[in-house]
């Protein structure tokens, strides 16, 4: 409930057409990984806190807030099959209706799975709260 924090590396973002889907997210992750590799830049270290309220991202080096994403804007999360150390989620942009897929590199495959399962747990708890509040 109070949140779980993970140390990850931010790979990047790409637009997607739909809020969910295995093939859609796999294609998005593929694009993000290719772009990150092509840029050759060092990846930004981030701390990602998951709770039933949503996801909060901080820059690990500066402790600056990057984004606070409400659970209601997140549509989907996944541990990628092809890139098994990659965790990704799809979120509706705060500024317009566009959907973005954000991807993060984990140190281990198990960690990508743990982040994904933690976000899934947050979805479940948020849904229980929402139902109770109705």
């Amino acid at each position: 409930l109070e949140g779980m924090t993970f140390q990850l590396k931010y790979l990047g973002v790409t637009m997607v057409e739909q809020p969910k889907g295995e093939e859609l997210s796999a294609a998005a992750v593929k694009r993000i990984v290719a772009t990150a590799k092509a840029s050759g830049k060092k990846l930004q270290k981030v701390s990602l806190t998951v709770s039933p309220r949503g996801i909060i991202l901080y820059d690990s080096a500066s402790n600056q807030l990057i984004e606070n994403i409400s659970i209601y804007r997140i549509s989907y999360c996944t541990a990628d099959k092809m890139h098994d150390k990659v965790f990704a989620y799809i979120v509706q942009s705060q500024h317009n209706e566009t959907l973005e897929c954000h991807a993060f590199l984990c140190s281990k495959r198990k960690m990508a799975q743990a982040v994904t399962l933690t976000v899934a747990q947050a979805f479940k708890v948020a849904f229980e709260f929402w139902q109770a509040a109705k």
Binding site: I71, Y72, S75, Y76, C77, T78, A79, T116, F123, A126
Partner: peptide, 18 residues
Amino acid sequence: NTNTIHFDNPVYQKTTED
């Protein structure tokens, strides 16, 4: 292992109205 772990959010786009 060919399984993808993925989850849909059941509260996506639900309003936060009380």
